[in-house]
Write a protein that binds this DNA or RNA. Structure first.
Lengths: 220, 220, 220, 220
DNA sequence: CATGAATGAGGTTTCATTCAT
DNA sequence: CATGAATGAAACCTCATTCAT
């Protein structure tokens, strides 16, 4: 749960309490993602829950506390995905492509996560910075990339002036954009980036993009 | 102004009126960008303006009307930039790189625009879709790319399975991400993507990325 | 108005606004005095007012801001009374008695003031300490007493080991007690200290008390 | 316990129950004294107790029942002190001074009692009036004074137009004020009436005051 | 065009109290 | 006796919007 709040039940003891909190968090995730922090309504969240508004305050202390808990939850989920990626056996090219595709798959299927990240950026990451867990655990995505890039560089196939954080940035940018800018993009260019018919080619494209960039002879 | 609202002053007559409206729009742009649609306060906007709340309602009818006007204004500004890009004389490679860099330069120097686009996406582009001007005029960015890609494909240097909208997507994703996700990225990875020291290498990287992807032999 | 709050209309411009604020302050004074800070209800105050709850927040910002304004108002009123006391022409004895009686008269006819002081003490004077005006202006009551005591001491009729603050304490204690402890005293001892029939003798008694104490030969 | 409430455990049976109740009452006394009736929080009281909220309701029925029990407890304590005062052997002067000093000593060392009396007065002694015990037993303080005054009057040293209730009022006023108005007084006059350095002179002063007043020749 | 005053609906939060185990 | 979970009523406060001058 949130790292800095007190006066709230930190860890539920009964199984029923777990269900109540999960219920609240699930609904709250959707509401915050769909309406932004200020636009989300505690009343509305409560109404869609099995429980009452009072319980939100009982467990999370405040609207902000709830939002923080939501944030930590979605960041914990992506950590799980990242930890499930194993590329030790793959060539640097294949490893890079695998990581890119995994990120693409996660982001395009976790709309709420991407929206919450967008929202959090509007608020200058002020809430996220309060969560030691997120700060500490979510940077580990980089170590995986570092290892792959080092292998590629050593093998002479990867350029050495682009580091893991840069690569992560390229991959994240592409994957995030699909979800985060879906609606304005669709409105203006009349193409839904998440159209299932485009999924395969878009997944291939992100792999191409990152591999081509890293193996680009001209850039060296 | 917004395309569907009536009962509001559409075009200012006196020069003073123009200045008043510009003042309001400038402040409102900052407020909406910084706080989101629901988070922005009409009172706050009025307080920071040289005029009063009454004028906001006189000129823009409602908070939503003001937001729409703000949106149209920032989209008009990027249209200006796009129209200033001329790549007819350049090779397809150079042309692509020029367009990518121009987008990168625009986005990284127009934080409010990117933030407003993020916000608009949170609201499923519901406001943007009301603006015929934006929908009609802003898609023209594509024609420029189409022409370049066609030249590259005809020359045999570009792959032909990636169209102008895809390329625009890649470029926008990279450029948007720098601004839109700046804060969460900085918090977690301890790297400010807009750090002036990184500007040159990041501008080069976006060019590398799009050119490498389009000229990628392996992908063909 | 309160010294530290912002975002609230500090000084009303129209006469109507003055009336609205006075109306609110009058009712609020009664409500806070009757129910304590926590016990007073903003809703109730608003209901008894010509205006609405919203106006309370418009003018005073918060419940606390309103309470502070109430506090400053009643302290300003007693300052007025204190400034109206002139004892330069009187003998030290008579002057002391006059001051004591004036305090007695003020306190016994300003129940709300005494109650608010009681309430403020329950809250360890945390609000009062925020008001520079009260702190600066209300201590001046002492200078009047100092001058009188000095005269009495010099004349050899007053003891010199009791200073103005001590005398003020004795007088205030007696006068406050009549109002502040009226109800418990009446319940237990079956005597209403504010019974009009007792007024004269109690006014005389406070004068006797302070004069006798200061002229007490045995104490010297 | 309260005289009129039923359905609550009147007298604890086990020793453990006594300790639990005492624990609750001790904490509750502090909380009510520090925050007023409305300002005190049942949750907070429970949290500071070794037991739980359930126990408060089990033993005292309601917040009001608890408050009443607190009130009765502190009034019982001062009764004990009063019963310990013996002045039969002393001269009327010395007896008066002894009573005054004892009251002064009690009040200045029982802040919570004085605060609760202040609070109770804000509520027009509505709770206190429900307690037959307090009403019946606490008026007996007067009989002690009556006897002393009668002796003094008979001896010709005391005036006869000031009765025991008046004297009790003077003494209580002085002693209460030290505690009840400590904070506003300190804030405005920059003198802490309970400063240990002032204790002796202030104790002497209350004796001087009451004796001087009663033996005042001028007043007769 | 300008300004402070006003409004009502609805938002977030708190509190005493009770329930289930 | 003890504990965390739950509740509903009501508290405080905010916001977009309109009015009177």
């Amino acid at each position: 749960m949130s790292d800095q709040l007190s006066d709230v039940r930190e860890t539920p003891t009964t199984e029923r309490a777990v269900r109540t909190q999960d219920d609240i968090l699930r609904i709250a995730t959707a509401e915050f993602a769909a309406n932004g922090y200020a636009g989300a309504r505690v009343d509305e969240i409560a109404a869609r829950t099995r429980t009452t508004k009072r319980m939100i305050y009982y467990y999370f202390g405040s609207k902000e506390g709830l939002y923080l808990a939501v944030l930590e939850r979605v960041y914990a989920q992506i950590r799980q995905v990242e930890r499930g990626i194993h590329v030790e056996e793959l060539s640097p090219d294949a490893a890079l492509r695998t990581i890119a595709e995994a990120t693409y798959d996660h982001h395009t299927t976790h709309e709420a996560f991407i929206q919450l990240v967008s929202i959090e950026n509007i608020h200058r990451a002020e809430h996220l910075r309060q969560s030691e867990t997120i700060l500490r655990e979510n940077a580990t995505a980089i170590t995986l990339l570092e290892e792959v890039i080092e292998r590629g560089v050593r093998a002479g196939t990867f350029r050495d002036d682009v580091d893991a954080v840069d690569v992560h940035m390229m991959i994240s940018a592409y994957a995030c954009f699909h979800v985060a800018n879906r609606h304005t993009f669709a409105a203006i260019f009349e193409r839904d980036m998440l159209d299932p018919d485009l999924q395969d080619s878009h997944r291939r494209l992100i792999g191409d993009m990152v591999v081509a960039t890293m193996t680009d002879r001209a850039a060296r």
